[in-house]
């Protein structure tokens, strides 16, 4: 017989996209739910970046000048615009912004890859389910262990002069 403390009023689910989103986050799925959500969000983020990345790499063949103009912006450098516009030059917020986004992209790909290996492991070797909680912690541990040196390397470059310093 269930004791009174375990008896809960049935949760009323509200309608509407926002309410469903909030209820989804409150759903008590624990570690597995969060790794599922992060896997999904990082995957969609990587896809958004890849669409941009395929388009800009196409310029290598179609228009080399536009390619150098585009990848220059990633380093904070605006080049190749008509001199009369007066916009060519180095903009540090561009460089810092793209650096932080770059670190975020690396983190997304790394987590998606390691967590994906966990998913494949459980799918093809069902006995791994018995240690599925530990596997999530292993994924997080490997992710953090790799991200620490990567963060140092990627951010350290900001403290040396940019590729095309304007004096």
């Amino acid at each position: 017989m269930p004791t009174t403390s375990t008896l809960k009023a049935p949760r009323v689910y509200r309608r509407g996209t926002w309410a469903r989103f909030v209820e989804g986050l409150r759903y008590g799925g624990g570690l597995g739910q969060w790794s599922w959500l992060v896997h999904r969000v990082t995957g969609l983020g990587i896809l958004l970046f890849l669409i941009i990345h395929v388009l800009d790499t196409f310029f290598v063949v179609a228009w080399p000048g536009l390619y150098d103009h585009t990848v220059g912006i990633y380093g904070g450098m605006v080049t190749g615009l008509p001199v009369t516009w007066g916009l060519n030059g180095y903009y540090w917020p561009l460089r810092w912004g793209f650096r932080i986004a770059e670190l975020g992209l690396i983190a997304c790909v790394l987590f998606h890859a390691i967590n994906g290996v966990r998913v494949v492991l459980i799918d093809f070797w069902p006995r791994a389910v018995s240690i599925q909680r530990q596997l999530v912690w292993i994924v997080l541990g490997v992710f953090i262990a790799i991200m620490i040196p990567v963060t140092f390397i990627v951010i350290a470059a900001l403290f040396s002069p940019p590729a095309h310093t304007m004096h």
Partner: peptide, 8 residues
């Protein structure tokens, strides 16, 4: 490499 050195 450094992404800032990547060009055509």
């Amino acid at each position: 490499n450094n992404v800032e050195n990547i060009n055509y």
